[in-house]
Design a protein around this nucleic acid. Structure first.
Lengths: 228, 228
DNA sequence: TCATCTTTTTGAACACGTTCAAAAATGTGA
DNA sequence: TCACATTTTTGAACGTGTTCAAAAAGATGA
């Protein structure tokens, strides 16, 4: 355990160098050696602070998620409808991720909630109970979007809605990762059409048929998350 | 271009060795060196036949897909309903993939249809027009399942159904990849509940509301695949 | 048979992520 | 101040995927 000033300084220096290089050189061309050099320390020392290159990538991902949150939140205007809000959040996410397309696969692994595996990784909790880096925060963002939307979504699904929207969000992100169209235009187009469609579906969930389906889906994912 | 006997022999030897090692040692512990050694050639020679380790993994993936097909096809009995068929196909897939869980991320990349990128990869078509290794074949399997199911799904969506089922299938696979529960029990449970739910949804697609949604979803994915 | 061209094969070499024993710096108690 | 323990730092080393120049083997034609 450290927390000394010097130690924290080295650590920050490594993160800063890494993020800068990730941004300007991409994932592949940013080597641990170049990160260490840019930070003015040895390779081995970088590994004293971070167990792997991926742990540095996680740092990048966290920062991007924070950026997304702070860019999207102020755009949520009371009274706009859910479709607008959703579209706005999804597009902001794509905007922010755009320069980092070649990190896709790595980001995905981070975003996924690691089911509490064979009880072996009870350590390494860097932040607030992470299952899936930034997942909780992301869902909170969608919860906010739901709260300020008019008209309000049907009460029956209002509680589950944020998590469902997060699922849609993940879907789009997944599509983006494997989207090789120039500038990832297709992902943007997908977001443009998915948003209103989802909103429409939310409204329709007032009808018993649709609502039952939605409830089934919700139970399904809750069931899949169960632990036995 | 070769096609000489000797050449094809070396190639096969490499594939066989690779698949055997992948099966017994997993992805990480199977090195290009060990593959080459097992095949009785030098490392460099392995790279003469395969551009990368991933290309060997693709070979494995293809074989697994074929196995899936030939295990699932004979189980499709005329007269069973769609839910049963779907469940059966999904579970067979999980069964076959089970020993290869640590290949997950690599498989995913292979399964995904690479949008015709910046027009740079018009070569390297090993098989029948691949967009996404085995995607066409997989969809064909679902088409067969649809065809032999009783009652027949509504005509309105029958054409699009195979592709939609493939989408569901991919969803489950994605879940499986990141499923760290022992034996991937959760994925199996998910498949068990997703199958009847999907079937129910298909039936409900007779109702105008649901059908419109389904149509929207179909258009959406067709739109996202467009090329401009 | 020989000379020439192409296909196949080799093994050394490179850059990478990662590990590790040992050195240096820093902290601690007397 | 000194001796000792802990934290931090180093740089060489390992095993990996991959590349490459050059050697070997094979095909072709006269």
């Amino acid at each position: 355990m450290a927390a000394t000033v010097k130690s924290e300084q080295t650590r920050r220096q490594l993160i800063d160098s890494a993020l800068e290089l990730f941004r300007t050189q991409g994932y592949a061309k940013t080597t641990m050696r170049s990160i260490a050099e840019a930070a003015g320390v040895s390779v081995g020392n970088a590994y004293y602070y971070f167990r792997s290159k991926d742990e540095l990538v996680a740092e990048l991902y966290r920062q991007l998620q924070d950026e997304h949150r702070s860019r999207a939140l102020p755009l949520l205007r009371e009274g706009h409808n859910l479709g607008e809000h959703l579209k706005l959040i999804l597009l902001a996410h794509l905007d922010i991720l755009e320069p980092y397309h070649d990190f896709g696969a790595h980001f995905l692994r981070l975003a996924m909630p690691p089911s509490p595996s064979s009880a072996a990784d009870r350590r390494s909790r860097r932040n607030t109970a992470d299952d899936g880096v930034g997942r909780a925060k992301s869902i909170a963002l969608f919860r906010q979007a739901v709260t300020v939307s008019r008209p309000q979504p049907p009460l029956a699904i209002r509680d589950d809605l944020p998590e469902l929207l997060w699922l849609v969000h993940m879907g789009i992100t997944l599509f983006w990762i494997y989207d090789r169209s120039p500038g990832q235009t297709r992902s943007r187009r997908l977001a443009h059409s998915v948003a209103p469609l989802t909103a429409k579906l939310v409204i329709l969930s007032r009808l018993p048929v649709v609502r039952n389906i939605v409830e089934d889906v919700v139970h399904l994912f809750q069931g899949a998350r169960r632990d036995d």
